[in-house]
Design a protein around this nucleic acid. Sequence first.
DNA 1: CATGGGATTGACT
DNA 2: GTCAATCCCATGC
Length: 204
Amino acid sequence: MTARAGTAIDRAFFDRPVLDVARDLVGCVVAHEGTAGVIVETEAYHHTEPACHAYVGLTARTSVLYGDPGTAYVYRSYGIHALLNAVCEPREVGAAVLIRALEPLDGIDLMRERRGLDRLTDLCSGPGKLTQALGIELAENATSLLDGPVRVLPREGPPPRLVAGPRIGITKAAELPWRFCAAGSRHVSKPWPSAFRDSLGQES
DNA sequence: CATGGGATTGACT
DNA sequence: GTCAATCCCATGC
């Protein structure tokens, strides 16, 4: 279905500082089993700050974060939701980008069926929503994003304009502005305060 | 082995 | 605005 089926991102893309990857992933595509969406929101996590799971060092859970860049780290949140991350940086650095929201692209009927909702902006506007819409579960943890069941594909066209701000839903290191959104997107998990929108000149 | 805390969401007051 | 659902896993006894 998608014209991008043959293309791929290489491992070097993820083997870079996690903040750079978080910014560059906005506009890329995530695809899984016939469903796909354009990334409109990401967050960066790094083992040197306490909000990151890798902060505790190498354990059974964090071994994926200390694994190969370009690997999927999928974990269960609040006992209910599966959250999708892309492992970044060299193996000795525990770091990942949380994919927080997508703009639906392919397989939208299937997404609606899985989510039990119709509105396009409700399908993938949150980290737990997008995994449900795409059918991504814990089974995809530790699989390759380059040639595994879940793929990250390069963006076409120019880089989108970004808005940065503090990460959502965390209590530790909450001040770091490590959340990145496509400016003006209606598909992000939480809208920006109007003062932000005004100062950035977004239409709305 | 028991416990507690989440990188959330949806339903409800 | 509040709050419960529900599971994985790190930690501590």
